[in-house]
Write a protein that binds this DNA or RNA. Sequence first.
RNA 1: GCGGCCUUAGCUCAGGUGGUAGAGCGCCAGGUUGUGGUCUUGGAUGUCACGGGUUCGAGUCCCGUAGGUCGCCCCA
Length: 455
Amino acid sequence: MSTPALQPARGTHDLIGDEFRRHQQVIDAARHIASLYGFEEWATPVFEDTRVFSRSLGDTSDVVTKEMYTFTDRGGESVTLRPENTAGVCRALVSNGLTQSNLPRKVFYAGPMFRYERPQKGRYRQFHQIGIEVLGAAEPLADAEVIACGWHIQQELGISEGTVLEVNTLGDRPSREAYRAALVEYFTAHKDRLSEDSRMRLEKNPLRILDSKDRNDQALMAGAPTIHQYLTPEAAAFYDGLRRHLDAFKVPYRENPRIVRGLDYYNHTAFEFVTDRLGAQGTVMGGGRYDGLVEQMGGPNTPSVGWAAGVERLSLLLEAAGLTPAAPRAVAVIPVGEAAEAAAISLLQLLRGAGLVAEMAYRGNLKRRMERANRIKAAAALILGDDELAKGVVVVRNLDDGTQAEVPLDGVIAALAETEVDGAMEATLAAQMEGELEAMMEAEDEAPPPPRKRR
RNA sequence: GCGGCCUUAGCUCAGGUGGUAGAGCGCCAGGUUGUGGUCUUGGAUGUCACGGGUUCGAGUCCCGUAGGUCGCCCCA
């Protein structure tokens, strides 16, 4: 090594091995559950015209003012790597002329997002989000279903323990303006006791004081007015509807009048799934209602609701819960001598054709190939040499218990199924059982299924 | 953007008060030229993150930079 090794760019990370499998597990589970709720998957561009974000996220939010990867391309256009995907989905709805029919539209997405932030565990500059959006539904039932879907995904992953759902309402515009005025009045009266940060927030975004982590601020909050006293009858009815439907979905929640949303486009419902297991990155899934966003993209009034979740954070929870998916175990085909190689390749393809993970080393004697089979944690070794070739058999060795037997070439698949080696065949059996389990659970009237164990 | 802590072999980490590097695991080879995982013998590891400074001498002390990490801000 004479040249210095290159590091990944700050705040980026490679997904390899266990980490990749956890990441994929999160996305697979979310995609599957979302599809059960009737969501279709969209993929929108990773970069957009900068105005897609500057128009939607609000000029004051930190995301827009200092965290966006914005640059001018060779044609002189200002483009931005998406810091989140809700704006892009709304823009796509409008650009594709989907605002006039087939509403509501239910969209699932998964992909990388980019924010120029100080990296920490569970927080990266290129990170990944999954999310769902219901576009064109004004009913609180939509909000409740969106939340139920998110909860269901966490249950499916087996990571719902230690996580609580906190809900709040931000009201409609009149509610929020009245509340905002009342808050400013209250905190201005106690300005001398506010933290320095919160005094800034009092000017910029007084609602944000509500989720300050400062001790003194929190003490002061005990006496602060809550939004509930300022809700219009319509906003109060909406919030009642949300809670009623959450009960019907049997999703447990806690009301937290201090939940606010970071981005400016939210109204009515605001919620977060918060865990106590990830330090300062406690929010694992967050979302709410954004009735005005599609209009800001140049479309008609299209009330909508959705959430986004950080794949890295969900993946950390999987790891902490000991639910890292195991790599599939292969069957190692081992030819002995050059004459057996062609027959071994035929066997290799036969196994793959039957849906088994099969591997054959590119070189090496029997000992080497056995070592390699062991290293890749193969479940079984199939040894094929001149002796076997002459007899029309293959040696099937179970690498877990060391037993082996000669099996006729055409009976290999059946023999592997019978030996009940971990992984390989067991995986297909497990998949079948899982299908039956799901059918059973659908028959039950309890909506949230119990958390599933490692598969 | 602000503050604390950290950075020594592929990995996890030792290296009082400055005297030019070590363990375990892993890796490679042999004991076993058609049998791995166990056992055993031997072997190779390294610009001590990077750049400066102090010193006869720096992994060790000082300054700067980069990366990681924890917290704040913000957010998923």
